[in-house]
Simulated scan of single mutants.
Amino acid sequence: MSLIATLRMLWHRWYITFPGLLLAGLCAAGIWYTVPPSYERSATELLLPGKNDYPVGSNPLLYVGGLTSSADVLTRAVSADNVLKEVTKDHPGTDVTVQRDGSTSTPLIVITVTSKTNADARDVLSAMVARTASELSALQESQHIKTTDRITVEPITVATKSTLQQRTRLVLTVAAGAALAALALLIAALTEGLSRKRRRRADAVEASAADGLADDGPADDGPVDAGPADDAPAVAAPLPTVRPSSGFPTRRRSRPSAADRSRAPSMTTRRA
């Protein structure tokens, strides 16, 4: 079906198309204002080697290359379910992601917090930054590592403002509006299709009925010989024409019939 035919069909069923599209728009607007946006904050932390792992007075940042494995271990410890549940128990609807920055070999740990409110995102991020340091200290203390050999974690960046995330809100709005609009157009198309099907069926029935009437009518095979009518008046035979000859009227003798000829021999016999 071409675009013009489709638009014509939708216009023909405007009482279904227009209310359906209006309902889809109202539903999409309602979801947009009902679903709140999300607030996201992130922080980045760096692992630093122990004081005995680099020369006195040198820059510890030059010796962070061997701490990638330690960053992976700390990431697993901080992102455990029990830790995340403990931190977010007073902040429902908050999601926390802890992972090592895979784009570089530097032992960087990235913490991302997504929450329904800006305050919850701020509080949970602060709690996770503090929890990372405590978990690292607990891990090293459980291994009885000396204080001078212990790895430390240093926050590099901590977001002070949340980023507004509209993705979930936008996806739900578009999905609801598109679904209702498609449903309205589908109903309009089905209604138009069923109507056309009924019209074609009615036309076919009328055409077949007309053909039947034409077959039952009188056939024009030529003139019909109805025979002589009983009530028609009898026409008298014309009288024989008499021609005069030699002044005396004479009657024209008619030819003898078959009965006269059959009686002729018997008359001759009697005369004899």
Rank of each mutant, 00 (worst) to 15 (best):
R122V: 06
L21H: 05
I145F: 07
T34V: 02
S257V: 05
D101R: 10
D53E: 10
A204F: 08
R252S: 03
L61G: 01
T94E: 05
T148Y: 07
T157A: 12
L108T: 03
R251D: 05
A24P: 14
T163R: 08
K116M: 11
G193L: 15
I111T: 11
S262V: 08
A184F: 12
T147P: 03
G20L: 08
P218G: 04
F248R: 00
D53Y: 13
R263M: 04
G193C: 15
V110L: 04
C27W: 05
Q165R: 06
F18V: 14
D101F: 11
D215Y: 03
T241R: 02
R263V: 14
T68N: 05
A237M: 14
F248E: 01
V64W: 07
D221Y: 09
P19W: 02
D149E: 13
A237I: 15
S70R: 02
E135L: 12
R13Q: 08
K89L: 11
L62Y: 13
C27V: 03
R263D: 08
A43I: 02
V73G: 04
L84R: 04
S79K: 04
P223M: 13
A127Q: 14
A188W: 15
Y54V: 01
A181D: 05
I4R: 04
I4G: 01
A210T: 11
D225N: 12
K161F: 14
R167C: 00
P49M: 09
A5G: 02
A189F: 14
M1G: 02
M1H: 05
Q143Y: 09
R198V: 07
A219K: 07
D90S: 02
P55Y: 12
L10G: 03
G102S: 07
D123F: 14
A179L: 12
S103P: 01
V110Y: 03
D216Y: 05
D260V: 07
P228F: 14
N52I: 06
D225M: 15
L47I: 06
A189H: 12
N118V: 15
S245G: 11
L62E: 09
R252E: 09
P244W: 12
S266L: 15
L239M: 09
R201M: 13
Q165P: 00
L3G: 00
A202R: 04
R243G: 10
L139V: 06
S134Q: 08
T168Y: 07
L186R: 12
R100V: 11
G25L: 05
A229Q: 15
D215E: 14
L10R: 07
T152C: 08
L47C: 02
T132E: 04
Q143A: 07
L46E: 02
G177H: 03
D149Q: 14
I156H: 05
A259W: 13
Q140D: 09
R270D: 11
G102C: 02
P223A: 15
R243K: 06
L183W: 12
V224L: 13
I16N: 03
L180M: 10
V98S: 00
T148N: 04
T269K: 08
R169M: 09
V153F: 00
V124W: 01
A264C: 00
S38R: 09
R198A: 13
P238A: 09
A264M: 02
D203I: 07
D120P: 03
S208T: 11
P37W: 13
I111K: 06
G102D: 06
C27S: 07
L22V: 12
L125H: 11
E206R: 10
A184K: 08
E206F: 14
G217L: 06
L172W: 07
L7C: 10
